[in-house]
Amino acid sequence: MTVSNGDPLKIFVPFVNEKMATELFSENKFLLNVDIHLFDNRGRSAGLPKLYNEIIDNHLNEDVWLFFVHEDFEVQGELFGTENLAHEAVYGTFGVRLDGHAPVGFGQHKCSEKDGSSVLQVGLPVTSPTWVETLDCVAILIHTRLLRDRPRLRFDEALTFDLYAEDFCINAQENFGVPVMVLPVEFQHYSKGYVTERYWRGIKHLGEKYPNVGVPGSCSFIGGKSQELETHYTYDIPANRKKRRDRAAKKNRNYFKALRLFRKRP
């Protein structure tokens, strides 16, 4: 196991809400000595995988830890040290793995609305690096040496805002045998899960991309074998319930609309 002694850590935050990004990162007392790069994505509206891949390309010749985080991610305690971390692994702050047939989330954190209300505690606490199957997109930490040695290990630009971390983890494990780990850090995610149509399109894309894989994600099973896993377990995430109901209602509306089209004329 090769560890990366003393390689610097850089945080990259693409944002569309400048106030939130500034408050949570530039003014965060736990990130005072950390190199933070805020990217304004309002004009460009580029997909995060595309931005991340560009950042990777720009830093590929350095030995550095790249920490990609969402703008609504707030570190509320001391940030993990990278001195003893093996560089041949993908790290994050929240991830999921199967325990029997049930997915278990690791990396306890607070999950709330954008304004900080309706706080939920999510995930099991971790005290040391803990292996998982997939990471949540909220935060992902990679060493450039891992990426330099593996040119095919990049974010999938077909995915825009969802599931790119999950895809990266599956790619790392299935094609390169790279472990995926969750690091202990205290944080709050100001975004309750939004499971949108875009998400389900992403799920379909990953099902076609990895037909022989079935892994648990934060909001659903992922991969071509996810149906097999779903026979044993159904996701019911508190943060997603509202959206699930909306989705069901929309589906019903479409169904009745379709019925009206085929109604017999008098």
Binding site: A86, F176, M181
Partner: peptide, 24 residues
Amino acid sequence: ERRFGTNEASEISLNEIYSLLAVL
């Protein structure tokens, strides 16, 4: 198996497994 297994030698040794176990 995915990291060390190749077309030439698909089998992996116990030491290789334990090198990854040290990370996990």
